[in-house]
Amino acid sequence: MSKVLIFGGTTEGRLLTQKLCAAGHEVTLSCATEYGRELVQEGPKVSVLAQRLDARQMEHLMRQGFEFVCDTTHPYAREVSKNIRQAAAAAALPYLRLLRSEDARGEAFSPEELKRIHEEPDAQAAARWLKKTQGPIFLTTGSKDLPSFSDPELIARIWLRILPMRDSLETALSLGFLQPQIIAMQGPFSQEVNEALFHHARAKFLVTKDSGDVGGYGAKLQAALTSGMEVVVLKRPQEEGYQWQELLAFFHSFSI
């Protein structure tokens, strides 16, 4: 059996930890926050580290007897993935990137609905697009992108949904978002929950990342289009790596 280091407090990171542990591998899951640690049960073959690491610290950790490095971080965490990849190369360890599957529901949307989906390359471009519009905005891209939407004219229009974490709330409040504008909830959410929140906010626009089915993107997109909203999607970075079943098959070959 192998000693595996997994980076990512995502759903996939937690599921992969469980799968590999059940197969007999020794797993360490490295996530950035204590909140991520709380979602994983440690045991004889599972340990969890909750700390933000730079590339040098990642490399030092990797040299502690690990045989494989798995990157299950969020598909938009480009800088983190870059650091993990560079650290793995420096430590001479295999780097295995888990790709998040895309949601297939877009194929079922009508031409009129597809016209209401606008793809932008990044948060700054999305903010510029929104400044040309009017009406309430429902923002779901996460606390790290909030500075891009901190223009006072935009803040006055935004309902913000973020994770219920202290640093996320502090970031939002420090940028000028008011408490009544902030919804702190842990997803993913069903279409019905999304529709209820959009209705409560009287939102005309949804801003989201393409986080795939695991991240609830399909249900969120369907809810927005059903509610007659315009949707601004931050383009997902292109990556190479393993699909879920491919990665499980890779480790299965070491369990035989």
Rank of each mutant, 00 (worst) to 15 (best):
L15K: 11
L178P: 10
E230Y: 12
E239W: 15
I155Q: 12
Y35L: 13
V4Y: 06
K82R: 15
H25W: 02
Q186R: 14
G142C: 12
S47N: 08
S30N: 04
F254D: 11
E153D: 15
S211L: 04
I162R: 07
R100H: 13
P164F: 10
L197H: 11
I256Q: 09
M1E: 14
Q179E: 11
P121Y: 14
L221Y: 07
G65V: 14
P94H: 04
F138K: 08
L248C: 12
L206F: 01
A90L: 10
T133A: 13
E59P: 02
V69G: 05
I183Q: 12
P136H: 02
G215C: 09
D167T: 13
V27I: 15
Q18A: 12
L234I: 15
V232F: 06
T33L: 09
E12C: 01
A104Y: 03
Y95N: 02
S211M: 09
I256G: 08
F251D: 12
T10L: 14
L139D: 04
E113T: 04
F198G: 08
D71A: 10
L96V: 00
P188H: 11
Q243S: 01
S227L: 10
L247T: 04
L5F: 03
V48W: 08
M229N: 02
F7Y: 12
M58D: 00
T10Q: 14
E67M: 04
H74P: 05
F177N: 07
L16D: 12
L20S: 09
H74G: 03
A249M: 06
A55K: 00
P164H: 04
S168C: 15
L53V: 06
Q124G: 08
P147Q: 05
L221R: 11
A89D: 04
R202Q: 07
P152R: 03
Y95D: 06
W129H: 13
Q86S: 13
G8V: 07
